[in-house]
Design a protein around this nucleic acid. Structure first.
Length: 114
RNA sequence: AAAGUAGCACACACGACCGCUGACACUUGUGUUGGAGGAAAGUCCGGACUCCGUAGAGCGUGAGGCUGGCUAACGGCCAGAGGCAGCAAUGCCAUGGAUAGUGCAACAGAAAAGACACAGCCUAGCAUGACUAGGUGACGGUGAAAUGGUGGGGUAAAAGCCCACCGGGUGGCUGGUGACAGUCAUCGCGUGUAAACCCCCUCAGGAGCAAGGUCUCAUAGAGAUGCGUUGCGCUGCGGCGCGUAAGGAUUGCUCGUCCGAUGCAUCCGGGUUGACUGCAUGAGGCAUCAGGUAACUGGUGUCCCAGAUAAAUGGUCGUGCACGACAGAAUCCGGCUUAUGUGCUACUUUUUCG
RNA sequence: UCCCGGAUCGUCCAAAGGCAGGACAACGGUUUCUGGUUCCGUUAAUCUAGGUUCGAAUCCUAGUCCGGGAU
């Protein structure tokens, strides 16, 4: 049994889903990331990295960081939810992304219990 | 040792665990194995490949431009010629034609391509002048550029007018495949700009993988092909003119070509979304032998080496060091250009020591 | 990914290879008791680097940035 699998089903892929999350979803912001989220039947994640973040190499690295940190924190999500993560700045690191993501999930958990 | 010139190589490595992605196996969720670059970049050139049969012919337009070779092709590469820069190693050059023609050369300057006028110099005349006639040709605050240059002879004053050397044009001879070089004779020889128009030579049909092809699903009509018919006037019954229709299409224009109004018959197509395909065995890599100064070519052996589609290479730990620059494939190749870290080799100049 | 177009004062536009001009804006003055209007003046630019040319915003080459089209 795999501990932290991350198959393609766990990703937001369709352009329609991105548009739906943008219109119907709610927004949560930290200093470095923006989270668009909405309830779903299966928890999924998507990443949008704009050109102001950096060049192609760095954009691709940021996407890998986001996916890796999501893969590791996904078991802590209690309610199924779709998330689109949008980095806001070029001052990023893997540690910062992980910290913000787990903070967002903790905030979400607390909100649902109340 | 310092400064410089040219070329080549590498692009953090290894191991463990957790993940991503292609292929192949079988026990269908495991295993084995492959997984970014020298520039993947810019999209600046050249091709392959695909579609457009209204893609033909001519003109135009665009690109290239010393010579010979290489190449699928090129604006690329190699070997040379000439010129420029540098003490040198070496580097750079859109480098055909300015007597085929046209244009332009601001300001300044007498004059900017017409060698004339103006100013000057000289001679002659008598009216002795701010004069007339003739000779002369670059001397004259310029200018980016001034009618080949320097020196001498010559003359009334001068001038390729004459001579020597240098430069240039034309013709011959020699060497070279050739660009060109050398040499002899001859001509006293009217600027620059062709990255201005242009002339000459060479090349180019257009669009681009979001090209193009196949399938599924839903919706509802339009298209293709073939055959026939089509008005009026003249008539020698072959045709001719007018009209429908002085129209439309053909990715710059012309010619040429095609279409057209209506009836019948036959056939079934179009767009959207998604999937598959195009799509990785190639003008391929490596080794070696042969030919060639070289670029490159040929033979033999061997290898298969990314293929995604919100888009695959990351995270953690350990060890080592130079502590890791520029930077991410998207149809594929050959170049060019730009960005960029480290190391090595050869050569040049200068200095010091032996 | 493929294919196009552009870059001139702070802004919007001009400019046959020969002094970069106009409008608005800004600033200073004039007029007014003050402000506005009017009038006068000033400041201010050729995306960058090379090349051709006597001379480049203009011609050529390379780069940088911005914008557009094709799903």
């Amino acid at each position: 049994m795999k501990a932290y699998p991350f198959p393609p089903a766990y990703r937001v892929v369709k352009g329609r889903d991105f548009a739906r999350l943008k219109v119907e979803g709610k927004v949560f912001r930290t200093k470095k990331l923006i989270f668009n989220y909405a309830p779903a039947t299966l928890s999924r994640v998507g990443v949008i990295v704009t050109k102001k973040v950096g060049n192609a190499v760095f954009r691709s690295l940021v996407k890998r960081w986001v996916r890796e940190s999501y893969r590791l924190t996904r078991p802590t999500i209690n309610q199924p939810i779709d998330i689109v993560i949008i980095p806001r700045t070029s001052k990023l690191s893997f540690a910062a992304i992980s910290q913000d993501l787990s903070f967002f999930i903790g905030w979400l958990d607390e909100k649902n219990t109340h």
